[in-house]
Design a protein around this nucleic acid. Sequence first.
RNA 1: GGUCCCUUCGUCUAUCGGUUAGGACGCGAGAUUUUCAAUCUUGAAAGACGGGUUCGACUCCCGUAGGGACCGCCA
Length: 455
Amino acid sequence: MSTIVRFAPSPTGRLHIGNIRTAVLNYLFALKSDGRFLLRLDDTDRERSTEEFAEGIRRDLAWLGFDISWQVRQSDRIARYDAAADKLKAAGLLYPCYESEDELERRRKRQMARGAPPIYDRASLRMSAEERARLEGEGRSPYWRFRLPNTEGSDGIVPLPTLVSWNDAIRGDQTVDLGSLSDPVLIRADGSYLYTFTSVVDDIELGITHVIRGGDHLTNTGVQIALFEALGAVPPVFAHHSLLVDAQGQALSKRLGALSIEGLRETGLEPMAVLSHAALVGTSDAIEAHSDLASLAAQFSFDKISLAPGRFDVAELNQLNARLLHRTGYAPIAQRLAALGVGGGEAFWDAVRGNVETLADARAWWDIATGTISPVIEDAGLVATAATLLPAEPWDETTWGAWTNAVKQATGAKGRALFHPLRLALTGREAGPELKHLLPFIGRERALARLKSSV
RNA sequence: GGUCCCUUCGUCUAUCGGUUAGGACGCGAGAUUUUCAAUCUUGAAAGACGGGUUCGACUCCCGUAGGGACCGCCA
């Protein structure tokens, strides 16, 4: 059986680095096992899901370089959920409940205050048919709960400890006690379905073989395994990775806009830098920039994924991005450079690539070379002398050496005393690419003007 | 309040009872660049704490501390 995995975000917000970690882990596993990757938009929450977010998610994934040619959305699959729900109702595994949300909330708080677990007491399950009829007569429409199989040996109502276990591809043997959980709500009072249910129905019908998701779903998995079985299906393999925390070790908040993929893209990061970091953080592999997904996939393995929370550090991501760019040749990015208005072709890129953190920095260097800058005159005398010694054009890579030697002879300056004032006057910057490479792009006219800017 | 998970150099981690505790990033130094940045080489740097078990513990057990997840008519 060939591998099928899915990434199932809900279009209630933009993707952030934590989501991408889940996405890339799924994607790499599919790639490595020659399987398929499904993008499933979990949009059953009508209140919060929007088409705009759905579009944003697709854009983010496309930018990252995922092949998202196979997509489904849960809002298109309601008939499937209806059928599965009917099946459960017929088997007496889905029962109507009539408490209001407020009532449930109050009840939970009371239980917590008493130090008791906030578990639903199955009050509606104990209800007589007459009572149900009366409530419905009043116009109350029920919401529906799945009756967890945790009453073996009891009266059928009182839950008993019931362990569900599975062998997690990342965490090893896991168990969840269904006896300590509430019967999950599967259908809202308005008739819409909840994730716990739709996810299982889809996983069954779309033939998902591996569910790779965050550890925040660990308890869901216990419930969902019971659902798979209630629907007569064999559960897929589950793999729960740890969640990401920020550089301070705090939980990654979805509110942090800068960590959205959109935000990362806007700051000029390369997709492969983001992907490399997302795939490698919290694994035993070195965090280094890979140039393509295939190379990341080649070394993917569940047992390399740590159980401890992964630490996401933007500074590290920037570093990764810089290193990726440093070793990127001209051809793959020629178009993007042109789009940024960077000229000079391959020679210019080779001159500056060691000094860029993002591609936009190449534009900054192009502007420094060919635009208007504010020269910094550190040593007016030396700079003035240098101006008079500028060779005639044409200039090439040997010009810098010949010129600085002449300046050295004339002034006696050498080393830092010679080069630092020249760099400051020519570029206005403390650090930068080798001037031997940059000087030809500045050209004699601009160089002369910059050197003479002190007078 | 309950259940579950995690804790090794600054960071991400290797080790699955016996190691000089290894690697990667970052940091320091050297080389190179007649300057800087980039690049290359190299160095420093670690088992949360307290108890056990054992000839021997980073590794197994218990406790403490810290962090995380879940306990929704969210996903």
